[in-house]
Amino acid sequence: MEVRTIKVFTTVDNINLHTQVVDMSMTYGQQFGPTYLDGADVTKIKPHNSHEGKTFYVLPNDDTLRVEAFEYYHTTDPSFLGRYMSALNHTKKWKYPQVNGLTSIKWADNNCYLATALLTLQQIELKFNPPALQDAYYRARAGEAANFCALILAYCNKTVGELGDVRETMSYLFQHANLDSCKRVLNVVCKTCGQQQTTLKGVEAVMYMGTLSYEQFKKGVQIPCTCGKQATKYLVQQESPFVMMSAPPAQYELKHGTFTCASEYTGNYQCGHYKHITSKETLYCIDGALLTKSSEYKGPITDVFYKENSYTTTIK
């Protein structure tokens, strides 16, 4: 009895394709271990004539594949690729409408935090270190965002349907971005203890939790000093293409032309909904596939993004 075979390709990165001759009487799992086709788990399936010449994702289970996976995804987590594939199996079914010149995501599976993050990423200057993220990001900007969303979920250790947080998501993504040249110098002034300067680099240099107003941050924000008295913390120097200011959701007025974009969060910790506000020729609110415009805006804002380049204080 002759062994019926077909020729397929296996890959971990969709760049390096490895030619395989597979036995049609055995499952993919018996031949390769966990195997995925377009995100779908085909591990328990036997090869079919229609699979001839198709590319299958496999887990990096030998040295060659491990090197290829690390170079593309910059992670050695053995569960990463499987999590990416199972997320992709959902995100490829989502709709990605162009809204006001940006790629958004039609609401499904509690994905409003991903839509808000995706919209924000198209408006701030950011370059990702893992080629996987950078490639998928370019495709997302062009309207094909399924891979990018699935990668975000995998890097953030999230599953489809789980509630997510924009600030946490951005923080994970910033860790995989090139923020080497970003720098922030802060000064804390206390009447009792004097003053202390701190220099922050990388992710810490672009994120701040405690106030939404970048102007206020430049002037000074009140913080408790270690001595128990009130101290003032203010920005001395900022070198970065953008800054992200966050605070627990509270009524906040966004003035046209003073910011790049913002995240609105309605609801409580267990259950809520994100919308995205962007400042173009007027203010726009993007909620999944829905767009509304207004000249002014007041609502429960939790993150505001500002364009920056270089700032030095005039406070002496």
Rank of each mutant, 00 (worst) to 15 (best):
V166W: 00
V99I: 15
S263Y: 03
A136T: 08
N157F: 11
E144R: 07
H90S: 12
N187T: 10
L37D: 15
K46R: 13
V221E: 00
V67D: 12
Y306V: 00
L37V: 10
V304N: 00
V21S: 12
F9L: 10
T55K: 10
G228Q: 11
G267C: 05
F259V: 05
T43I: 09
S240P: 04
M244R: 10
A250F: 05
Q216T: 08
D109P: 04
S104K: 02
E215S: 07
S171Y: 15
Y172T: 14
I315M: 15
P60L: 04
M209C: 13
C225T: 02
T282A: 12
A177D: 03
L153Q: 01
T199L: 06
L17A: 12
K280N: 10
A231M: 04
A87T: 10
V22W: 04
P60E: 04
L88N: 01
G33M: 05
Y138T: 14
L179D: 01
T258R: 05
S310Q: 15
E239P: 03
E264N: 04
N309T: 15
Y252Q: 01
N157P: 02
Y172R: 13
F9V: 11
T103W: 03
A146E: 06
G39F: 08
Q123T: 05
V8C: 13
V58T: 12
K298F: 10
L290C: 12
K280W: 05
E71P: 06
A117P: 07
Q197N: 08
T199H: 11
G33F: 06
A247H: 07
N89E: 15
Q238H: 02
H256P: 14
E52H: 14
A136N: 07
E125S: 08
Q237S: 14
E264Y: 06
K92E: 07
G220I: 03
C182Y: 08
Y155S: 00
K106C: 15
N111D: 09
S310I: 15
T192D: 14
D165P: 00
E71Y: 11
G29D: 10
Y113M: 08
K280M: 14
T192L: 09
K307Q: 11
I15Y: 08
K7Q: 11
Y73C: 03
K191D: 15
T314G: 13
Y306W: 00
C261E: 07
T103P: 06
C225A: 04
T282E: 10
Y252P: 06
L126R: 03
S279V: 03
N14G: 15
N49P: 13
T75R: 10
C182S: 06
G267T: 04
T116Y: 00
T103C: 08
D13M: 04
T226G: 13
Q20H: 15
E68G: 11
D62L: 09
K93C: 11
V22G: 04
L151W: 07
L65S: 12
T75A: 11
Q122G: 04
L88H: 09
L37T: 10
A115D: 04
V188A: 10
K106T: 13
I124C: 08
C285H: 02
A150W: 00
F217Y: 04
P241L: 02
K201P: 07
T278G: 03
S279N: 05
K280Q: 15
C190D: 09
Y96V: 00
K46F: 09
T64V: 12
S240I: 00
G210I: 10
D165A: 05
V221A: 02
E308Y: 13
A140L: 13
T10G: 04
Y265D: 05
K46Y: 13
I152S: 00
V12Q: 07
M207P: 00
Y57N: 07
E162W: 03
N14D: 14
D165H: 05
A115E: 04
L291Q: 10
G210E: 01
I105W: 01
V58F: 00
Y214N: 01
F70Q: 09
A69W: 00
K219T: 09
A154H: 00
N111F: 12
L65C: 11
C261I: 00
G272R: 00
A247Q: 00
T211M: 08
L121E: 03
D38N: 12
L200P: 09
Q195R: 09
T313C: 14
P130M: 04
H176V: 05
P78S: 13
E71N: 14
R141S: 08
T169P: 03
R4D: 12
V22T: 08
C112S: 00
G29M: 14
L118C: 07
K298Y: 11
K44S: 14
M170W: 02
A108H: 00
Q175W: 03
